[in-house]
Amino acid sequence: MYQPLRTAHTETVRIRNLDYHVRTWGDEAATQPPLVLLHGWMDVGASWQFVVDAFGEAFFGSRRILAPDWRGFGHTRPAAPCDHYVFADYLADLDQLLDHYAGAAPVDLVGHSMGGNIAMFYAGIRPARIRRLVNLEGFGLPATRPEQAPGRYAQWMDEIRRHERGELALKTYGDVDGVAQRLRKTNPRLPADKAAWLAREWAALGPDGRWAILGDDAHKIVNPQLYRVDEALALYAAIGAPVLSVQSDSDSLGQWWKGKYTLDEYHQRLGHVRDVRTAVVQDAGHMLHHDQPQVVAQRIEDFVAGPA
């Protein structure tokens, strides 16, 4: 099984009536801005361990690195059962997490997938708080039309009922090896040793003796509000920090949306960011920070620590 090279510490921070679980590496007294790592949907903060282990010694030694578990993921669980989650809550959660860890000082922000989308929106809302931003495959969503709203709200209400009936429950596994196999089925590039380690962070043994994914099944319920591209572009345009957008060479966006939303459209949207550059990671899929952690770590390090 994979053995982490750098020891993580975990702590709990009270944020908006939630006990937020945060994984940290490095020295609180580090001289450079904190590096905040935001995980994606159905993932956990521990997912960044492979990238943290790949950072150079000088870079790692100069920073405190933080990786929260988003609400409803990992060990940040609501005190009472929840039947849906609202995207805007992640923005407010991040705002107060940065209050706690950085005060008024700007941070360097890295987000993957959903975490990348949160990072892009947040950087437009609070531009002074972000020094550099790295977005790993946070593509946003296909454009919608106002006339889709009635159907979307109906779908949301129907899925809440399905959730109440237990129809959206996540699969459980008889042992931790089953969890590791699930991780490798989703991402065949993930080495077996890393899957075995990550399985113990991504799932936990339940009272029924089965391993359950550390993600609330209510996250499967559709967002009732449409994705409004004009609002997203306004937020992109308000970003003050330099942005590095990183994607894999496998076009995961095209695989998901099958022509409804393309990489060309995403790059057109990026044109609204005033200071942006792009990079491609070869031989990687959507989980590029698992597939090529050394390459991703070097991209982050070069961009964040490089000259203005």
Rank of each mutant, 00 (worst) to 15 (best):
W156R: 13
P142C: 08
E147P: 02
M120T: 12
R162A: 15
H163G: 09
A123P: 12
Q148V: 03
F121C: 08
R129L: 08
L141W: 11
P150N: 06
Q148P: 09
E147K: 05
R162G: 12
F121G: 03
Q155I: 00
F121W: 09
Y122F: 12
A123V: 09
P127Y: 00
R126Y: 13
I125E: 05
R131K: 09
A143K: 06
A123W: 03
I160L: 15
E164Y: 11
R161D: 15
G124L: 06
G151R: 07
L141T: 00
T144P: 01
I125R: 08
A123S: 14
E164P: 04
A119I: 07
R152H: 02
M157S: 14
I130Q: 01
D158M: 10
E164F: 13
R126Q: 13
G124T: 07
R165D: 14
A143C: 05
A123C: 10
R152C: 08
W156Y: 15
A154K: 07
R145W: 07
A123L: 02
E137G: 04
A119D: 01
A149C: 03
W156T: 05
L133W: 00
I118E: 06
A128I: 00
L136H: 02
G138V: 07
G140V: 02
M157H: 14
I125D: 04
A149H: 11
P142F: 03
N135M: 02
P127L: 00
L136Y: 07
I160V: 15
L141S: 11
P127Q: 00
R152K: 14
N135E: 03
E147M: 02
P150H: 08
L136Q: 01
L136C: 04
I130N: 01
Y122W: 07
L141F: 13
G166L: 09
E147N: 12
A149Y: 13
N135T: 04
R131S: 11
I160N: 11
N135V: 15
Y122H: 06
P142K: 03
Y153A: 14
P142V: 06
L136A: 03
I160R: 15
L133Q: 03
W156Q: 11
R126K: 08
D158K: 10
D158E: 15
P127T: 01
G124S: 07
R152V: 09
R129T: 02
A143N: 07
I130T: 09
P146V: 04
I118V: 15
W156M: 09
I118P: 10
G151N: 09
G124Y: 06
A154W: 07
W156N: 12
E164S: 15
R129A: 10
A149V: 08
P150Q: 05
G166I: 05
L136R: 02
Q155C: 04
P146S: 05
M157G: 12
G151D: 12
G138H: 01
N135K: 00
E137C: 07
R152Q: 15
R165H: 13
G124N: 01
M157D: 14
